[in-house]
Design a protein around this nucleic acid. Structure first.
Lengths: 221, 221, 221, 221
DNA sequence: TATGAATGAGGGTTCATTCAT
DNA sequence: TATGAATGAACCCTCATTCAT
């Protein structure tokens, strides 16, 4: 069978699996559920994944890759202060989140599977790598801000990066718990506060704020 | 009194259940596991909880109560600025977290159980209440800061409160994933940045803030 | 639960399992079959045996013990020559075989399970022990015969013992294949020939031969 | 010719099947295993055999034919007494057995398949025929011995024939169970004893015994 | 003819729950 | 009240067989 075709089918399966695992949870999902949802026979799944656990783990990898690829700082906002661009980036991420909030339970499944059970170590390792990358990414941006004298040189970029990530991570949870929760505002305000908090004094800040305004308006409008 | 004895035994069972669910996850835990760990017979559990789900849900309630009670702003730090006291409070919370990090997987189990399965609604409701309370609590402190003219009066306290909570929530996750992660520093730095970000200025800060706020509000609203 | 009761139930299960495995073979038997035949629930079996393989292996041990215990040289025949007593013993064994020929397929299952599959080593070891014991037993009797100057002193008792055992073993097979096969005659004649063949010389041999024949005839007729 | 090619391929398949069934047993072998071992595609097997059972049954027939053809009394030993020639024949058979002992498990598979399952009747019938032929063969030799006044005229040739066959059959089992078992000696001694046991009178018997011993010694030593 | 992807019936095993003791 | 033996529904996974290519 053509390798290409095989990969395409595998991805279709992963998509179906994502939906079912999301809906019913890992333990609550049967292989038959996934097969039915994918419109194929139960046994066929085992031609692509060697076990339910493998399917789930592969799903995590596939999903994580997708998330990392979905938004990028580079493409968020045009020229502007780092802070403004980062806020635009944050905005993109939250928009992404909102667009895929119906999949949020899947994230919780991944976390819980990383907490216990047979996949724990595999998942923890993969997640560690993912978080490291992510922290690296955010940390790098913050350092750009320092280099451009926008952020205070003493800023513990690693710490702040992880704080921002944590904020975004768990905002999703609050939103999932209560869809009335205004995740965009909460995220923007919090990230904004953090960045303000590490910004260098008054006078420079002023101009950056103005820009942010113009920028944001364009984006959202 | 009979009732008291019963409650005490129930709590012993909950404690045992917490440990086992934490270790093996909800799905990976059998009633027999819990019974064995509690040193009682399997059937006895059903004298206290009518099903595995009920046991788990009761455990959540019990656990959530404990968490809310463990630390308090009032007792954290002595007199000082709100920011300083809040940082001390944060420090206490993280210490608490570190002390009970071995139970962190349990939190992930609760989240995942809130994401899907039969307990979803029950748990979501309970969590919603918990987060509301928590946001109220943090929000109240922030408002104290505003009242004392320490924080900017336009601060979206609800948004910032949820941001702080999110930060603390998900910091635990990063620590769980990688025990080398310096959670204390990360949390303190992030919260500090947030609080600095909403603090009233250096006199100039004032005006810049006004604009920013108006902007955001317009944008998001 | 009283240990005694447990053992009794275990034996009832083994009996049921023997019948079903015999009827349908190891692979063709489902745990459900055994449970139904034993009049209990499917899951109950796992309270007594930890897997289908264990059940089968335990069954072999139980069965082998039973076989070894069923007949004994000591109690076969009254005083007389070793040869006569041994022929009587053979007769007893064949009678035993005939009485339980409906279980012969089970023996074939044991052999085939010793040939391949996960139980191979366990079973081979157990069978080796069984055959060793059996050869020891028969060999000992032959040596008595030598001591009493009834059998030729050069007799390779180990070889002959294994030959006799082989004869009895595989006679069952021929009988199983074709119930018209006269197993009693075949076994008695063969064993008689063997014993005659190792008996000390001419003059005595002749008469003993006559007797043996007469004896056999009496027994079979 | 097409048909020839087909038969040749069928035989290659049977050979592969024999090896795999021997290694893993009937139940433990998958059609895919056989196909892989034969270096062909899974589906192709069904071009030659209509089911797994048919493959196995055909294998039995093929295998049985091979066994019957492998050794012959006519070609064993040179001129000499029937007994000596038969001992030589026995020796050939055991040599054959030793050469193919790695395939012994297959024999056990055949037996167990004849004991239960869907192929039982087919296999039993085939085996019955095989044993009948074999007993006929051995019985005929014994009768030659009687005709030549070497064996006692009262000898129950059918019984003794089946005894000899049983001996050889089950000797293989003891050897399979324990490779240290000296199957050559055991078989030769036992068959020798049997033949001695049915040999005509005293005086000749003695000398023939000596010879037998010498012969055996030569062959085994 | 040869292939191997797809299928789904079937079986070993687990475990929440019940209930007789 | 406490127990744990018994239960059987449910599920993961295997594999003989089919069939489109």
């Amino acid at each position: 069978m053509r390798e290409e075709l095989r990969i395409e089918r595998k991805n279709r399966l992963l998509k179906a699996a994502a939906e079912v695992f999301c809906e019913k949870g890992y333990a609550g999902t049967t292989i038959a559920d996934v097969a039915t949802h994918a419109g194929i026979g139960k046994g066929t799944i085992y031609g692509y994944f060697s076990s339910k656990e493998d399917l789930f783990f592969d799903l995590f990898c596939w999903y994580a890759q997708g998330i990392m690829a979905d938004t990028s700082f580079e493409t968020s906002g045009d020229a502007g202060s780092i802070k403004d661009r980062f806020l635009a980036y944050t905005h993109d991420i939250i928009q992404e989140m909102l667009a895929s909030v119906h999949m949020y339970p899947l994230t919780l499944e991944f976390w819980s599977a990383a907490a216990s059970g047979n996949m724990r170590n595999r998942l923890k390792d993969a997640m560690e790598k993912m978080y490291d990358e992510y922290r690296q990414l955010i940390g790098g941006i913050l350092q750009q801000g320092i280099a451009q004298e926008e952020f205070h040189p003493d800023t513990d970029t690693a710490a702040i990066a992880s704080g921002i990530i944590a904020t975004l991570d768990a905002m999703g949870l609050q939103y999932w718990i209560n869809p009335d929760f205004d995740i965009q505002t909460a995220a923007m305000q919090t990230v904004s506060a953090i960045l303000t908090g590490i910004s260098v004094p008054p006078e420079q800040k002023w101009s950056s704020r103005i820009k942010a305004k113009t920028l944001t308006q364009r984006m959202i409008g």
